[in-house]
C-alpha cells in the first residue's frame, strides 16, 4: 500500500475519533461519505468551534478564521481533505 494512502487512512481515523469524542456520537457509523453540517444534529455552528479546537490540539495545526467554512464540514471526507491540506508537508 502506498505510504500516502496509509497516512490518509490514519488521518481519517483520527478525524472520525475526534468527531465522535467531541460530538458524543458513540459508535455511530462514520464513513467518508457521511454528511455532517445540516445532517448531523449534534454539529451546529457552536459545535464546529469545539471540533476545530480539538483538531488543532490533536494535529498541532492552526486553522485560520477564514477557513472555518461550511464547505469543509459538508462530509467526513471533506473535513479529512481540509485537514490533509493543512497538515501536508509541502504546504
Amino acid at each position: 500500500m502506498p505510504h500516502s494512502e496509509t497516512v490518509n487512512e490514519a488521518l481519517e481515523t483520527s478525524v472520525r475519533q475526534i468527531l465522535r469524542a467531541t460530538l458524543g456520537l458513540g459508535q455511530r457509523p462514520l464513513t467518508a461519505a457521511t454528511p455532517l453540517l445540516g445532517s448531523l444534529p449534534e454539529l451546529d455552528s457552536m459545535a464546529v468551534i469545539s471540533v476545530i479546537t480539538a483538531l488543532e490540539d490533536h494535529f498541532g495545526i492552526t486553522v485560520s478564521d477564514d477557513d472555518i467554512h461550511a464547505r469543509h464540514f459538508a462530509t467526513v471526507g471533506s473535513l479529512v481533505d481540509f485537514i490533509h491540506a493543512i497538515t501536508r508537508p509541502d504546504r
Binding site: L37, G38, S45, M46, V48, I49, D65, I68, H69, A70, F73
Partner: peptide, 13 residues
C-alpha cells in the same frame, strides 16, 4: 439569523 452561505462558520458565535 445568519446568512445561509455563512452558516457553520463563526457568525452565530
Amino acid at each position: 439569523w445568519v446568512h445561509p452561505e455563512l452558516r457553520g462558520g463563526l457568525v452565530f458565535a
